[in-house]
Design a protein around this nucleic acid. Structure first.
Ligand SMILES: NC(=O)c1ccc[n+]([C@@H]2O[C@H](COP(=O)([O-])OP(=O)(O)OC[C@H]3O[C@@H](n4cnc5c(N)ncnc54)[C@H](O)[C@@H]3O)[C@@H](O)[C@H]2O)c1
Ligand SMILES: NC(=O)c1ccc[n+]([C@@H]2O[C@H](COP(=O)([O-])OP(=O)(O)OC[C@H]3O[C@@H](n4cnc5c(N)ncnc54)[C@H](O)[C@@H]3O)[C@@H](O)[C@H]2O)c1
Lengths: 256, 256
DNA sequence: AGGCGCTTGTGAAGACGTGCACAAATCGCG
DNA sequence: CGCGATTTGTGCACGTCTTCACAAGCGCCT
């Protein structure tokens, strides 16, 4: 496999893009690498070693190399990775070569913050529409976009090729909104409402739940407290946590 | 009601709480079960089967049973779990028997939304302080709380026993804020800024990064597109994704 | 009392993810 | 031109997580 030839990057060979089906854990880390790479590029670095990049992204260097090797690998032994090329590669794999249109449903407290967030634009996305069910919010202009009624979704979808729907409504409305999004062809949803969504096969849902994050932290807080409170259990064998939290991305103690 | 006694729950036996050290993946799911249980309780259910609860939480029932078994398990064979008791158990394990104080640093766009979020109060937390570095924001009152200067952190920490710090500042300021939080004894941080934080051992950091979530969705979108675009590779064996995404909590197609 | 249906709790197997350790590759330099 | 320093890419072993499948336990009904 070490033959060169660009696997399908921006260069667009006539051939199949041939997306390698990456391990999900790898996919979840690529955005981190991408962010770190952009920082490095801005700082003027042209190449970076796996050691350097992994430090910037907060992961193990072996893990980084394995992740990158999955996507065809563009490193040079003895030198490292070409920053610009790697950015191109990762952006290609993540499908960021086209700026994807996002529809934001629920322009309340949180929705306003999201609508005003510049992280969308700078990281490959574009808010294509703001939608709400409350008539008193419809027509409001935020950041150059006018809030439209959620029932206009079909119209919006006809105008734009919506890639992703973001739900920032109360939990009670979330399932209904998800159904509406699916109905107009959206196959990726990011859900901020604290509830489980049912969607047809082929539709991806990711959720962000603040309370869950806090409760996980609370657990560790509780555990740390109960450890220090009782040095009973035969010594301090437990003072250093087992480390190596895997799946969930709790980063524990990154010594600089 | 069961005659058994509570292992260390609110009842506070004199004995050690004896926190079982749960698998991290289990800890990440407990908050979901808790939310589902609260919904069930509100709906008047007194007991629930692993099948019912797992459906409400969007997970596999065997996984749910194993998760619950880790915390000592309070189910009754042939019947199911006592909803109220299970809520008590999970809240105890997660350390939610005390309402934990949260300090929110960075009261900008996002910070305002968080400050006005009722999900803190209803899920076991209390915003103890709002902090910002911008003098023009200091003094502003949000939801009954006055924004204080971030340099007052030591004072705040002296007044309240801060359990968790939430960072909602620009990325450039996040590390400095984290250092300040750690300096006043905070050992759990939730970071909304898109950057890696370095903290001493024993401090837990979790991050929420909107762009990462979107980019992961983008990847799957890209992949789905490249699959449907070319039904070349020997038939439709791939149309149904492998399913069973593990660690990261992408829920794919939960048929109702 | 006994049997029956239902549900929990768990052993075992397999999939997945991680990290070490090292061979292979490349560069720069004498 | 060859050598040593450096860094990638990966085989392998280990740990974690998921899922199946089923025995053990419980309550209810007859
Ligand atoms: N505010 C936060 O910081 C925060 C943080 C984490 C999660 N959340 C969650 O995000 C969601 C939104 O929170 P919020 O504070 O912005 O609430 P909010 O009540 O301020 O805003 C909700 C908005 O959704 C709109 N809406 C209601 N039903 C709708 C429908 N069927 N279709 C379209 N729009 C509809 C409402 O008109 C309102 O504008 C909630 O589920 C909340 O739990 C909020
Ligand atoms: N707005 C969103 O929807 C959103 C979504 C995801 C992530 N984020 C991230 O959250 C962070 C905040 O976003 P925002 O849109 O609220 O930005 P913002 O600029 O509106 O607010 C940042 C706030 O932090 C304060 N601040 C700056 N330096 C500080 C310091 N050293 N100590 C204390 N406070 C300080 C500023 O005074 C300002 O009030 C950013 O890192 C952003 O990338 C925002």
């Amino acid at each position: 496999m070490s033959q060169h030839r660009h696997p399908g990057a921006p260069g667009r060979a006539g051939a199949v893009p041939a997306l390698p089906d990456l391990p999900e854990a790898t996919v979840a880390r690529l955005p981190e690498y991408l962010r770190a790479l952009h920082n490095l590029a801005d700082a003027g670095h042209e190449t970076v070693s796996s050691e350097g990049l992994s430090a910037a992204a907060g992961v193990n260097s072996a893990k980084l190399r394995k992740d990158l090797s999955h996507l065809g690998s563009y490193g040079t032994r003895g030198v490292g990775y070409d920053v610009a090329l790697l950015i191109e590669q990762i952006e290609y794999v993540l499908g960021l070569t086209q700026r994807r249109a996002v529809a934001l449903v629920g322009v309340g407290n949180l929705g306003h913050a999201l609508a005003g967030y510049d992280g969308f634009a700078s990281r490959g996305f574009r808010i294509a529409a703001l939608l709400d069910a409350d008539p008193s919010r419809v027509g409001e202009e935020i950041n150059g976009l006018v809030v439209r009624h959620v029932d206009d979704l079909p119209t919006v979808a006809a105008e734009e090729s919506l890639a992703i729907g973001v739900i920032a409504t109360p939990a009670a409305a979330a399932q209904q909104v998800a159904d509406q999004l699916v109905a107009v062809g959206v196959t990726s949803i990011l859900n901020f409402a604290p509830c489980v969504l049912s969607v047809p096969e082929g539709v991806d849902v990711r959720k962000v739940d603040l309370a869950i994050e806090l409760q996980i932290l609370s657990f560790h807080e509780h555990r740390k407290a109960s450890l220090t409170a009782l040095p009973a259990t035969g010594g301090s064998a437990l003072t250093a946590l087992p480390g190596g939290f895997a799946a969930t991305d709790t980063q524990e103690a990154i010594g600089t």
